[in-house]
Simulated scan of single mutants.
Amino acid sequence: MNFLLNISTYSDDLELINHDWASAEKLLAETGFSGFELYPVGKDYPYQSIPTELIGGVHLRFFIMLEAIWRNDRAKLIEIFGDEETVRTFYGGTTRDAIVDCYRHQLELAHQFHVPYVVFHPVHYELDYVFNWQPPWKMESTLALSAEVLNAVLAETPYQGWVLLENLWWPENFRLDSTSEIDFLLGQIDYAKTGIVLDTGHLLNKNQSLGTEREGIEYLLNEIKSLGRHRDLIKAVHLTKSISRDYVRQTKGQTFNGEQDFWKKLSIAARHVRQIDQHNAFEDAAIAELFELISPDHVVFEFAYRSISEWKEKIALQKKALGSIFQTCITSSTPHFSSE
């Protein structure tokens, strides 16, 4: 297994490495990881400044809301965003071409970095439902839309590695609730190397009766056991803990209090989501049992962090919990990742 850390080209992340990828490489060597899963932000960053050997995977952009722009539903777009300029700012354009162009650019980056996998969220969710968890559409429509987007994007790309589908917790989305859900989605994607990246925190977020880490791990193990042989589709894991029962119960039924401005609503929703999806480290050694059920090629310690010391502390806690499962991936030779 390759053990990776998450990083993005958002300024906050780059400041932690002093905008210097030599510092990022030093962090890998210090902590025993073989590379980063990169979330690239925008087309303007000088990606050529990132040493190819440091990047082990690419997380494609998470657009959240895709249906209205993909279906060219102008009335719905204006209802959500308020005006065409806000639509353009959010998506980088006002038609589905902006979505395709964004993803193809990121797949081109993945090709240039020679990464073995990219991550895609099969999701459609709207701000109006982030508090009540009661969207009016069905899971099948979300998965069909996601497959349609992926098929359009993958029709013309040099990238030949794995496309891994990441689970979320919002109802009527891809949640790993059943094997039939997996079959329904994969059956519509015209790309042979399609698999799953299991996000453990997102899976835990589904169950808001979990009050302790041990309860969470037991639930996680049972959910993965229920997938049977479909577990073999799990090629990567975002290993992260979220036990947010109390917060979700406190905020159920909360609203935007009449706020109509899209960007202010998005900011409120983002703060809310960060409280649900905590991106903390597992500390209980029972988490190692997960890797008796699955054998992923890649394990990403996907944490939220505000300082380099907090980042290192979470890394140390989760490495300790994994015990012998964690193997140092930095060797005397240069780390190498391949999409072949």
Rank of each mutant, 00 (worst) to 15 (best):
F3I: 08
L4A: 11
I7H: 05
S8C: 09
D12S: 11
D12N: 11
D13A: 10
L14C: 00
E15D: 03
E15I: 13
N18G: 06
N18Q: 08
H19K: 05
D20F: 01
S23F: 14
K26Q: 15
L27R: 09
L28P: 13
T31L: 06
G32T: 14
F36G: 11
F36K: 06
E37T: 14
G42C: 07
Y45G: 04
Q48H: 11
I50K: 02
P51E: 02
P51N: 01
T52G: 07
G57C: 10
V58D: 12
L60T: 12
F63C: 11
E67D: 15
N72L: 04
A75H: 12
L77C: 00
I78T: 10
E79S: 13
I80S: 07
D83Y: 12
D97R: 10
D101Y: 05
A110E: 02
H111C: 02
H114D: 10
V115I: 08
V115W: 04
F120D: 09
L127E: 08
D128I: 02
N132R: 07
N132P: 08
K138A: 11
M139R: 13
E140N: 02
E140G: 00
T142A: 09
A144W: 08
A144G: 08
A147N: 01
L150G: 06
A152I: 04
A152E: 13
E156V: 09
T157L: 06
P158M: 06
G161D: 12
L164T: 14
E166W: 12
L168D: 09
W169Q: 14
E172T: 05
L176F: 11
E181K: 11
F184E: 12
L186C: 06
L186N: 03
I189M: 02
D190Q: 15
G195Q: 13
D199Y: 04
T200Q: 07
T200F: 07
K206R: 15
T212F: 01
R214D: 07
E218A: 14
L220Y: 00
L220P: 05
N222S: 14
N222E: 12
L227P: 08
D232L: 08
I234L: 06
A236H: 15
V237C: 10
T240A: 13
S244N: 06
D246H: 06
Y247R: 00
R249H: 14
Q250C: 02
Q254I: 02
A269F: 09
R274W: 05
Q275G: 00
Q278N: 05
H279S: 05
E283P: 01
L290F: 10
F291K: 02
I294W: 11
S295Q: 15
F303I: 07
Y305A: 13
Y305D: 12
Y305C: 00
S307Y: 14
S309D: 13
E310I: 11
E310Y: 00
E313Y: 12
A316T: 04
L317Q: 14
A321T: 13
L322Q: 12
S324W: 01
Q327I: 02
T328N: 09
P335H: 08
H336Y: 15
S339T: 07
